[in-house]
């Protein structure tokens, strides 16, 4: 038999029957390549488990404490960075407005009063228009239109509630 099947048996680590083992042993006496393969396979199988120095668990516990401390520090620094950054950005954006407000208080007080009056009068006008529509509109709209409108809205509300319920039931993240 030629060299190839023996090399494949060794390289693929195939289980051999007694006849194949005998044939392989005979081949190994003459073939240096296959002999080296067989020896390296056996050396790998004879390799031992290397264990760490005593106190591994204690060292890991110390490392966990340090990792937690580092995590807390990172969180604190991140919060600090974003807070200071946010404040600086706010100061940069609001700075010119604040300066002008401080420079002429009478002007901004009158502008504020003007804005408040505008909001108040607009709200009153919208409320008045709404009440007129509320009184007039029912007479123009037939009852079946109201029925269709309320049914559609109820359907949407039901669909929304079912969607939320199904989303809440689905397990999140962890597979176990």
């Amino acid at each position: 038999m030629n060299h190839r099947p023996f090399e494949d048996w060794l390289l693929d680590d195939q289980p051999l029957n007694p006849t194949q083992k005998r044939e392989l042993d005979t081949h190994l006496r003459t073939c240096k390549v296959c002999s080296a393969l067989a020896e390296s396979n056996l050396a790998l199988r004879s390799a031992r488990l290397v264990v760490p120095a005593p106190g591994f668990t204690s060292r890991w516990q110390e490392r966990l404490v340090l990792a937690r401390r580092a995590q807390r520090r990172r969180t604190l620094l991140g919060t600090l960075f974003f807070s200071v950054g946010g404040l600086l950005l706010l100061a940069f954006l609001a700075g010119p407005v604040l300066v002008s407000l401080i420079g002429s208080p009478a002007e901004w007080i009158s502008a504020m009063v003007h804005a408040l009056l505008f909001i108040y009068t607009t709200t009153l006008a919208v409320a008045e228009a709404g009440s007129v529509l509320f009184r007039v509109l029912p007479g123009f709209v037939p009852p079946f239109v109201w029925l269709v409108l309320f049914s559609t809205l109820s359907g949407f509300a039901l669909l929304w509630s079912v969607s939320i319920w199904r989303l809440m039931r689905r397990p999140q993240g962890v597979t176990s």
């Binding site: 060794l10 390289l11 693929d12 680590d13 240096k32 390549v33 002999s35 080296a36 393969l37 020896e39 390296s40 396979n41 056996l42 050396a43 790998l44 199988r45 004879s46 390799a47 031992r48 488990l49």
Partner: peptide
């Protein structure tokens, strides 16, 4: 397959008359 082939080649290059007496998957 590839790793065994490489290891066999290296073993042939470096080893002299190594002989290991051990059953497969002993340890």
């Amino acid at each position: 397959h590839r790793a065994r082939k490489q290891l066999g080649k290296l073993w042939q290059e470096t080893s002299t008359t190594a002989h290991v007496e051990r059953s497969p998957y002993e340890s």
